[in-house]
């Protein structure tokens, strides 16, 4: 129980995927313009991260590791993630059209999101147990969503601000991200 609590704190605040591990910067900068799209993207990422971990964990420890094929993990994981995302999209479209309408559009964006591949690889590197891996994936996704949602708020203010012409657009967004990241550094003392 204690270790899960530490994993939660670490994944959401201390080692936030976007703001301190720099994974998933593209969707962070791309889809954080509006609160609604941040929420949708965040929910889709949480879902895919947990499912991807649930699939890749048995593949690594059950299939690759006993046959000493650990080096194939990148190839195997990215294939599984790409296939899984495609599958979910098809199933969702057929079975749950309302859910597909609100979340489905974000799914293809996730295949090439390095946060998803990153969390599956890190779970293996850190040698978490299956349950710990699932919680790590869940809270990494929550941390990602938190950063996205917070940043959507910052960005809506940024739109109306009067900034020098050369800094308009991406440069000012990055500098705003740097300030948000600075505020997250305050959490770094939480875990020794």
């Amino acid at each position: 129980m204690k270790s899960i609590f530490i994993i939660m704190l670490s994944a959401v605040f201390v080692d936030n995927f976007v703001l301190s591990k720099f994974m998933g910067i593209c969707p962070f900068l791309g889809v954080s313009k509006k609160l609604s799209s941040s929420l949708g993207m965040g929910a889709a990422v949480i879902f895919v991260m947990v499912c991807a971990t649930a699939i890749t964990y048995p593949i690594y420890w059950g299939l690759l590791e006993p046959n000493s094929l650990e080096y194939l993990n990148t190839v195997a994981f990215i294939l599984v993630i790409a296939l899984f995302v495609q599958l979910v999209e098809i199933v969702m479209k057929k079975m749950m059209p309302p859910l597909y309408k609100s979340l489905g559009v974000y799914l293809p964006l996730i295949t090439t999101n390095c946060a998803v591949l990153g969390v599956t690889l890190l779970n293996i590197d850190n040698e978490y147990t299956f349950v710990e891996s699932l919680f790590n994936a869940l809270f990494a996704g929550v941390g990602f969503s938190l950063a996205l949602i917070l940043f959507a708020g910052v960005r809506s203010k940024l739109e109306t601000a009067d900034i020098p012409a050369t800094f308009k657009g991406i440069p000012s967004t990055l500098i705003a991200a740097s300030i948000v990241s600075l505020s997250f550094m305050a959490f770094s003392g939480l875990i020794k």
Binding site: F22, G30, I170, P171, L174, S178, I179, M185
Partner: peptide, 28 residues
């Protein structure tokens, strides 16, 4: 630290825009 990374990248892109003398990219 991570905050510095965002800051330096933002400044470098702004500098590139200034030197190139064109409208900065609005989107990624």
């Amino acid at each position: 630290m991570s905050a510095g990374g965002f800051f330096v990248l933002g400044c470098i892109i702004a500098l590139v825009n200034k030197i190139a003398g064109k409208k900065p990219p609005q989107k990624i």
